[in-house]
Design a protein around this nucleic acid. Structure first.
Lengths: 236, 236
DNA sequence: AAGTGGTCTAGACCACGCG
DNA sequence: GCGTGGTCTAGACCACTTT
């Protein structure tokens, strides 16, 4: 997506080199002065880029030594934050059951919307996660249409929304709040998850915060956990 | 703590004015240029200070308008890791229903024990969390007896096991892994949680890692979430 | 048009790590 | 001593909001 500013261009360049292994984990980036020459700019701008990468957990700075490339999964224990591609150890197949489309916000929400979100339409899509061909999670997702255009279902990187955000829009997940509930399956849910009506269902509502301050991603997950529990992990 | 740098000095000044209400919530800070004059410095430095305040959630910037003072939220990530005292906003009363005692490990577990844990007996205790007098969470806890002696129920700091560990043993929680399941209430659980048999129950099994590498704390939580959902939050 | 924050230039000096 | 990142100066131009 558009690198309108020079510091974003530098960020994107470094991020891409890190993600492809051109800048190896544990090694040091070129020095700020070298990056200045490479991009024909000044330290202020280079430092602006490095600072963002620092905040997003890509690098770590060492005074007098340089900027070191970090293991990218480090602080993200949070499996939920990684999306379900990472949350379950089994072979997961994701089906985009409702492709991204613009609609109005759902009425029932666990989280308050910001003013700008409230004023905007929202982009909605639904995915179903299958394990061994059996549906295990139904996941509704929403975000403000004014902040980010709908992403074409075909453009999803490996079926993952987060990977798509990171690689195509340079947006990283910065944190999340969840609410967890146990509910019983409605007729509709029971059908989608192929379980009996009134089966116990794990209901997770979540708001993900991103490196784009105006952009929150909202999710509502319905999980049948009898065979495959949902795993989370955290690091302090 | 010393304000060695000018941007910290500016930050401290603004933070203090916000916290004492001199800069009212919802109002705009002096403009960057005004702050430059006030502190006899340049915009780079003022902006560095404002940027930190932004990251810490004190202000919000509006292009073309100014920097607005925000409602200060508590937001202290990782509620689960901090234990349930912090997980629920309501008035929570904790009853130690089974005081710490030495027994053998339970047979059903979600996590594999280390060799030293396996070789040791375990300390077990059970707590029930009540909200407004109604039981909401039944929590079983275990840890290896060889690593830490049983803590007397009367010595629990504010009923919190984690606070006790931190304040009396200088042990901090470093992370956790969870498994989440939705189940239906057994007769025994239904009785303890005062709900109908077969009600949906949120079942969380968790292992907390601590700053003592040999010490893991294991938990099994049974939560009735119809009235009070369980909240989690993370930060990257 | 005037004022605000957003980006950027072209320097400077300092503190830290290493040889 | 030299290269690194940390802080800071003194400007400039742009984009956005308000009057």
């Amino acid at each position: 997506m558009a690198n309108k500013t020079k510091y974003r261009e530098i960020m994107g360049y470094i991020k891409e080199r890190i993600q492809t292994g051109n800048y190896a984990v544990g090694s040091f980036l070129p020095s700020e002065n070298e990056l200045c020459q490479q991009f024909n700019t000044t330290r202020t701008t280079v430092r602006r880029a490095l600072e963002e990468l620092l905040r997003e957990g890509f690098i770590q700075k060492e005074h007098g030594r340089g900027s070191k490339v970090l293991e990218r999964s480090k602080s993200l224990g949070l499996l939920t934050v990684k999306g379900f591609s990472g949350a379950i150890d089994y072979d997961v197949n994701t089906v985009i059951s409702v492709p991204p489309n613009i609609t109005s916000w759902p009425t029932m929400r666990s989280f308050a919307l910001s003013d700008t979100e409230e004023a905007s339409d929202c982009v909605y899509f639904q995915r179903i996660r299958n394990i061994n061909g059996k549906p295990v999670v139904v996941e509704d997702n929403w975000y403000a249409a004014s902040v980010l255009e709908p992403i074409d279902a075909a453009d999803f990187v490996e079926g993952s929304f987060f990977k798509t955000l990171s690689q195509k829009h340079l947006i990283e997940i910065m944190g999340a709040e969840q609410e967890l509930r146990a509910i019983t399956a409605t007729a509709e849910l029971a059908k989608k998850l192929q379980v009996a009506v009134n089966s116990p269902i794990l209901h997770i509502t979540v708001r993900f915060r991103t490196s784009l301050p105006e952009l929150n991603l909202y999710g509502a997950l319905y999980c049948t956990t009898t065979e495959y529990p949902i795993r989370n992990s955290y690091s302090v």
